[in-house]
């Protein structure tokens, strides 16, 4: 088909235009927030800022980065990301590998699998879960943010499906050479599944960075909040409580608009920075998880 009709050309033009608009709509809100955060208070309050800073200034960022609480929360987040991702990846690997075996290789394999899968279908709910975390003594400790969610079953399923796609012969040759299951896991399965592991690790890191609700309910003092929980209290809660007190006052109170914008932007910055480079791993994660053969 070399001939391109006029109607086809018109369609392509409309198609390209619409898709470009859709793509921009996904990104422009962030650009707008960045512009607000870099504008002067006066310009932001007057609503003059569109997609480019007005009266450019770093003052909002200076203010935010000099707040001790902000830095403390950032440190809590760094700790939870490192500790949480490490533990979670180790556990995921250790569960996914045995579950990828056939029932004749591992007794009760199906029963184990159901124990894990059932947790994705049914749960005790928020209150009993909170009570359990409290009873195990984790409240107000960093472990509360790491241990209860240390085994994301979705990631286990993702990884175990990947393991099953690997050729069995490689492992059999390892057994021939006298290696056992541990050798097979560390020397064969782990190295062969690096792309899948990279994807799962990435999801886990993003999950820990974004997680805010657990910090909010499991930490009694704000000094122990991770960054997302802290941001939730300063960006969202402040705003909403104002609205209840006096709607009109809240609508007029936009004085910290630039501070809030700066905090929103810093909160999303790590993801914005790594995303373009690691996007193919993110995409692989979806395809791995949903349309497997």
């Amino acid at each position: 088909m070399n001939h391109v009709s006029n109607s086809r050309r018109l369609f392509l033009l409309i198609n390209y235009t619409l898709l470009t608009i859709v793509a921009l709509l996904c990104f422009l809100p962030i650009v707008h927030i960045l512009a607000v955060s870099l504008s002067s208070k006066g310009a932001a309050t007057a609503g003059l800022v569109k997609l480019w800073p007005v009266d450019f200034t770093w003052s909002s960022y200076e203010y935010v980065l000099n707040k001790p609480q902000f830095l403390i929360s950032m440190w809590v987040t760094v700790q939870r990301v490192i500790l949480g991702t490490g533990i979670s990846m180790l556990l995921t690997l250790l569960v996914a590998y045995p579950l990828s075996k056939e029932p004749h290789q591992m007794k009760f394999r199906t029963a184990y699998a159901w124990i894990f899968v059932f947790t994705t279908l049914f749960s005790g709910g928020l209150i009993p879960w909170y009570m359990t975390v409290r009873d195990t003594g984790l409240i107000d400790t960093l472990w509360a943010l790491v241990i209860p969610g240390a085994l994301p079953v979705f990631n286990v399923i993702l990884l175990l499906n990947f393991f099953r796609g690997l050729p069995k012969e490689v492992e059999e040759s390892c057994f021939m050479d006298g290696g056992g299951y541990w050798t097979s896991l560390w020397r064969i399965y782990a190295p062969l599944s690096l792309p899948a592991m990279a994807t799962v690790t990435l999801f886990t890191i993003v999950g820990h960075w974004n997680s805010w609700f657990d910090g909010l309910i499991l930490m009694n003092s704000p000094e122990k909040y991770p960054l997302s929980s802290y941001l939730q209290t300063v960006i969202v809660q402040e705003n909403l409580s104002n609205m209840t007190a006096d709607q009109a006052a809240a609508m007029a109170d936009v004085s910290n608009r630039t501070f809030k914008a700066a905090q929103i932007f810093i909160g999303s910055l790590p993801i914005l920075l790594v995303y373009p480079f690691l996007q193919r791993y993110f995409v692989k994660g979806i395809v791995l998880g949903s349309v497997k053969g």
Binding site: L91, T92, L94, V95, Y97, P98, L99, K101, Q105, M106, K107, Y112, I115, F116, T119, F122, S123, G124, G125, P128, W129, M131, T132, V133, T136, I147, P148, G149, A150, L151, V153, V156, G180, Y181, W182, L185
Partner: peptide, 21 residues
């Protein structure tokens, strides 16, 4: 070894998913 590997994850799930049930 397979049963040993699965144990830590199993414990986490039993405590934080099944005990709340």
């Amino acid at each position: 070894p397979l049963h040993l590997m699965i144990l830590p994850g199993l414990i986490i799930v039993l405590i934080y998913s099944y005990w709340p049930m």
